[in-house]
């Protein structure tokens, strides 16, 4: 009986201990991703299936949101530009706003709600019903099959969705500009491409990759570490959305600072 392990007392306080333990666990999870992603077995089929789930299945929502954002942002910007007689600058203004910030941010936020919660709930549910344990006892690495595939799929698909959102938002903007200023599609897009630089597109792609990775890994982490029981599944899905949204805003701020430093250097 004397061998029975004594319960350790908290080092700082219970909450602080939990916070730092949680941080360490999250870092270890990310580290494990980068350690295991390079080595076989490669689950190509599952990555493709997840790309379909994350990319193709998000298209209706992304299309609607992107188009509405294009219209609304154009309509909201028009009065300010009209005061200076500069409504002809609308395509340039909208394209810069959409490519640099709105497209990646809006797509990432929608994806964190739709994809992040779905990944968190799916893996959380697999955890609760011992499906992850079943993989482990069958000598299958659940981290490779579940975490790496979903994180890679999110990392690949979010940039594609961002480009699509950019296009749809610009089409929405064109619809508004055409209705009010009678500008042709070619004139509109000539102005759009004149305003957008290579750095804008490059930084948008890099940002989208970071956002995609964040959505995938946070969803997987929260699901993989969900507490047992149905309540844990709901909490995992909710925490995946909240945490990924928070991180996306922080990343947006940091990347914007870096890109501006390069732009104005």
């Amino acid at each position: 009986m004397s061998k029975i392990k004594k319960v350790d007392k908290p080092v700082l306080s219970k909450n602080l201990d939990e916070f730092f333990t949680g941080m360490a666990k999250a870092f270890a999870f990310v580290k494990r991703f980068f350690k295991e992603v390079w080595f076989p077995p490669y689950e190509f089929k599952e990555v493709l299936r997840q790309c379909y789930e994350i990319g193709y299945r998000s298209l209706p929502l992304i299309s609607l949101t992107g188009f509405i954002i294009g219209i609304v942002f154009t309509n909201q910007s028009r009065p300010s530009l009209a005061e200076f007689g500069a409504t002809s600058w609308l395509p340039s203004l909208i394209s810069i706003a959409v490519v640099r910030a709105l497209g990646p941010l809006v797509t990432a936020l929608i994806a964190s709600g739709k994809v992040g919660s779905s990944i968190g709930a799916e893996i959380g549910s697999m955890n609760v019903t011992e499906q992850i344990d079943a993989m482990e006892v069958s000598a299958i690495n659940p981290f490779k099959y579940l975490v790496i595939t979903r994180t890679l799929a999110a990392t690949f698909m979010i940039p594609v969705l961002v480009m699509y959102t950019d296009f749809v938002a610009l089409m929405g903007s064109y619809a508004s500009v055409n209705a009010n200023e009678l500008v042709s599609l070619s004139t509109f897009f000539v102005q759009v491409f004149e305003a957008v630089s290579f750095l804008d597109i490059f930084s948008s792609v890099i940002k989208s990759l970071v956002f995609g990775f964040t959505i995938g890994i946070v969803g997987c982490y929260k699901g993989y570490n969900s507490s047992r029981g149905t309540e844990g599944v709901g909490q995992a899905a909710n925490a995946a959305v909240v945490m990924s949204m928070f991180l996306i805003f922080v990343e947006e701020l940091l990347i914007m600072q870096i890109v501006n430093a390069i732009r104005y250097a």
Partner: peptide
């Protein structure tokens, strides 16, 4: 290992 709730991949 046969699990209590079967643990079939749903």
């Amino acid at each position: 290992f046969s699990f209590q709730a079967s643990a079939l991949y749903d």
